[in-house]
Simulated scan of single mutants.
Amino acid sequence: MSDNFLEPQALGVPCPQCQCELQLKKGRYGLFVGCSGYPECDYMTAADFDPGTNVACPTCQQGKLVQKTSRYGRSFYACDRYPDCSYSVQLPPVAQVCPQCEFPILLKRKTAAGERLICAQHSCDYKSPLK
């Protein structure tokens, strides 16, 4: 790997906060995307950032569920209207209505036997057949 890889590399994408250019940077914990206007603008995100799932939030019906990472490095899916809406789930959501309780989303669970969809509502015990 060459030494110029350690220098920030321009991405040609404007920062959502200040409209400066975003850069791919190498930090203490690996690669990340940060604003070239740092320290005036402190916008940053993970290098492999996935903005969303295009699944509507079932509680507020206004936001979308987006993938986030906890402080312990685990992925979860939460409403993008946080802190107004604090809905979150641990498994990837799917925009399908539960046939048993009519809840608007199902969750994709991987098991040793295969992949199945389960209801996101704790009171419902719906599980789809194995795929």
Score class of each variant (00 low, 15 high):
69 T>Q: 08
20 C>A: 15
117 L>S: 02
129 P>C: 12
102 E>W: 07
104 P>R: 04
36 S>Q: 11
92 P>G: 02
127 K>G: 11
93 P>D: 01
69 T>G: 02
42 D>G: 07
75 S>V: 08
49 F>G: 05
76 F>C: 01
33 V>K: 05
1 M>H: 13
19 Q>C: 14
40 E>C: 08
95 A>Y: 00
1 M>F: 13
66 V>A: 03
100 Q>R: 05
114 G>F: 06
2 S>T: 15
128 S>F: 12
80 D>N: 12
24 L>F: 08
66 V>P: 00
105 I>Q: 01
64 K>I: 13
65 L>T: 04
23 Q>A: 09
118 I>R: 01
86 S>G: 09
92 P>D: 00
120 A>V: 09
62 Q>C: 08
106 L>C: 00
48 D>K: 03
127 K>H: 14
11 L>P: 02
95 A>I: 03
20 C>L: 12
87 Y>M: 12
68 K>N: 05
83 P>Q: 07
3 D>R: 14
76 F>L: 06
131 K>F: 15
1 M>D: 05
79 C>D: 07
49 F>A: 07
74 R>H: 12
50 D>S: 02
102 E>G: 00
34 G>L: 10
35 C>Q: 01
2 S>H: 11
79 C>S: 06
99 P>N: 03
81 R>P: 13
92 P>R: 01
110 K>L: 09
34 G>N: 03
122 H>K: 15
4 N>P: 12
58 P>V: 02
39 P>N: 05
7 E>V: 14
110 K>Y: 11
67 Q>K: 07
122 H>P: 10
